[in-house]
């Protein structure tokens, strides 16, 4: 049994403590936003925050995570409101989306410790592999997220999930209240 805090909730994992945190998150906690791409730290698709640091969860054992606070993409914000999430969408820095969660968390960790990173610092902090090739937009997205984080800019990248039909009707004239 291994106890840790995941996305703010205390969880106890009945799993081999030698198992990588990645598989505890994916297969025990069903937090499937954390992706498997290589298992050896090459791709970064499994990046999560452990006590605020962006770590590749395939290289961290469940035992090593004991007592720590883990944040996955599902916990970065409850409504896609984290500046990195908004900026990634606003800059079109998302294609297939497989590497996106890991990149978002690596960028969030960078901005938490450096509110105004240079392109070189962003390049070093995000070693994640993206094969669709969003790199040219990634620097711009992280810099935009940094400006938003510093309250120097506002961004509207993506709407929150779970919009109520009544709210949608208020916002979009073309939609009407469903008749019952």
């Amino acid at each position: 049994m291994t106890d840790l805090v995941v996305n703010g909730r205390p969880l106890r994992f009945a799993m081999d403590p030698a198992a990588p945190l990645l598989w505890a998150l994916r297969d025990a906690a069903n937090l499937t936003g954390t992706k498997y791409g290589c298992g050896v730290g090459d791709c970064g698709a499994c990046t999560v925050l452990v006590d605020g640091a962006a770590l590749r969860s395939c290289l961290v054992s469940l035992a090593d995570a004991e007592g720590r606070e883990v944040v996955t993409i599902e916990g970065l914000s409850h409504d896609r409101s984290h500046p990195v999430q908004q900026a990634l969408a606003a800059q079109g820095a998302i294609q297939c989306g497989f590497c996106t969660p890991g990149i978002a968390l690596a960028a969030a960790a960078l901005l938490a410790r450096n509110p105004d990173p240079s392109p070189a610092e962003i390049g070093t902090a995000i070693p994640n592999l993206c094969r669709c090739g969003v790199y040219p937009r990634l620097i711009a997205a992280v810099q935009q997220a940094a400006r938003v984080g510093r309250r120097a800019e506002r961004v509207e990248g993506v709407p929150p999930p779970g919009i109520e039909p009544a709210d949608a009707v208020r916002a979009v004239p073309a939609l009407s209240q469903p008749r019952h």
Binding site: T32, I73, E74, I94, G97, G157
Partner: peptide
């Protein structure tokens, strides 16, 4: 016409076959 798949891809809710 922003991408319709972007919102689900930034919060981990976009499901692949392994999810």
């Amino acid at each position: 016409f922003p991408r319709l798949d972007a919102p689900a891809k930034v919060d981990g809710s976009w499901l692949f076959a392994g999810d």
